[in-house]
């Protein structure tokens, strides 16, 4: 009898206990679908992405959408106030969300957000970094790893070039950004575990 759904891709963390697990799931799906569509539109605009096989485009998006959303929606996590803004625009404090069952994932999201925001990336840098997050040749189920790898290398070179140009005295930013990739994987794994728990025990 879950009463809360502490994902900011909802309008609210409160779940109507009268509703069935299926209808809760349907509403949740309707809430996050526009954000997923935006990720797909973003992917289509990455030069070279549409040249990958359709199978690999889907595989990359399936594996990486959550990580892209984490990067895109860091603004929902207010590190100073320790609040999370849900889709309705309403803010909830970490303490309130924790009382609703949010645990390690929430803490890790704040840690990631704080470190990423500290880099003060421009919109262009953030966009290119997001493309690097999405186009990862080590995702499972890819049929043409070499093509994905070639695109990944092109994007990483472009990111390094942009960071070097914009921050000539702070090349460590590029290294720090690449080190965010395993952090995102870790968040993705934690999120997947939560989803599995939710699906099995809605």
């Amino acid at each position: 009898n879950r009463m809360h759904l502490v994902c900011p891709m909802n309008t609210s963390p409160y779940v109507d206990p009268q509703k069935s697990g299926h209808s809760i799931w349907e509403e949740f799906s309707m809430s996050f679908t526009p954000a997923v569509r935006e990720v797909v539109e973003f992917a289509k605009r990455i030069p070279g992405f549409k040249d990958l096989s359709q199978h690999d485009q889907v595989s990359l998006l399936k594996a990486g959408t959550f990580e892209v959303l984490v990067v895109r929606f860091t603004s929902l996590f207010n590190v100073k106030e320790r609040t999370v803004t849900f889709l309705s625009g309403r803010k909830y404090s970490v303490e309130v969300l924790r009382s609703m069952g949010a645990g390690d994932l929430l803490n890790s999201m704040f840690d990631f957000t704080e470190k990423l925001q500290a880099l003060n990336l421009s919109e262009e840098e953030m966009s290119l970094f997001t493309a690097v997050v999405l186009v990862s040749a080590d995702r499972s189920g890819l049929e043409n790893v070499n093509s994905v790898e070639a695109l990944q290398e092109t994007l990483i070179r472009a990111l390094r070039s942009l960071i070097t140009k914009n921050h000539p005295n702070e090349i460590a930013i590029f290294t720090k950004l690449l080190l965010k990739l395993p952090d995102l994987r870790s968040l993705n794994n934690m999120h997947s575990e939560q989803l599995l728990a939710f699906k099995v025990h809605p």
């Binding site: 679908t33 889907v58 998006l61 959408t65 989803l195």
Partner: peptide, 27 residues
């Protein structure tokens, strides 16, 4: 339930968005 992305219906949303689903446009 071994694939959380499939559980979410993510693959379906992704495929439709990639292909520019006609049914959704009619809606």
């Amino acid at each position: 339930f071994s694939d959380p992305a499939s559980n979410l219906g993510l693959e379906d949303i992704i495929r439709k968005a990639l292909m520019g689903n006609m049914e959704e446009k009619q809606e």
